[in-house]
Design a protein around this nucleic acid. Sequence first.
DNA 1: GACAAATGATACTATTAATGTATCATAATG
DNA 2: CATTATGATACATTAATAGTATCATTTGTC
Lengths: 132, 132
Amino acid sequence: MKLITRNTDYSIRALIHIARNKDRIVSTTELVKELGVPRPFLRKILQLLSINGILKSYKGKNGGFKLAKDPEQIYLLTLMETFQGKFKLTECLFKKKICPNQISCKLRAQLDSLEELVENKIKEITLAQLSI
Amino acid sequence: MKLITRNTDYSIRALIHIARNKDRIVSTTELVKELGVPRPFLRKILQLLSINGILKSYKGKNGGFKLAKDPEQIYLLTLMETFQGKFKLTECLFKKKICPNQISCKLRAQLDSLEELVENKIKEITLAQLSI
DNA sequence: GACAAATGATACTATTAATGTATCATAATG
DNA sequence: CATTATGATACATTAATAGTATCATTTGTC
Ligand code: FES
Ligand code: FES
């Protein structure tokens, strides 16, 4: 299963490097060297982080990215939702339509409680903890 | 994200119906009517359950399936592993190769602890609880 | 001002995993 | 021995993930 997809994963690694060098601007070129990740893919990821206010971008020569917030305020959950959409362990898959049994479904009840558990855990993980 | 894929999901629903009728043989035809799931796909699923000792099959006319164990002994975790492979929230995705940082990686540590939490929860869910 | 080096915007392609089909063989019942 | 069921297995489709490509725009430096 994929709790974390590759774009989220790459974003974390990129942010860790940026966090560790947070008084200067870090370019995509540097990150590609550091992480060994495909450049166009990483660019797309960095752009999204920038659009979502997690990174601040600097255009032009010597440009690149800096953190837009403190690492303590960058949450894993936010990153996951940025790249993977709203956190949801499993939708009701039954017949692809919205399920009429949601309320009575025992499986759903179990999954919902599990989901809450996981979400609360992920909510607490910040970039600060990962980059130290 | 997909904690539970469709074949696991269908298998649960099929098992619930079989459990509720556990003194008789239930055929694929009946299950298709009951669940409205594509027949060939359901057949594949039932075969797998049978191979894995969760269902007992009866060939020939009036054939079909019965539970091979008590509902109390059929675990959600087992079903998930039957259809989705060994339970693992997220592998290290880094560079598609086995990661050399496993031990020092902070993200890995967090995910591992989360994984344990989830796995323990799922381990406790049985068909009995879902079919009542 | 021209050039180089960076990101912005966006459309496209490829790969992989999930989902679903089809077919023929084999067994049991009446 | 025909009918109705599962067994085995190969194939096809769809959707999600992962990755590329291209051109525009901004900025620093000579
Ligand atoms: S059947 Fe839809 S939520 Fe369970
Ligand atoms: S980088 Fe591989 S486990 Fe974290």
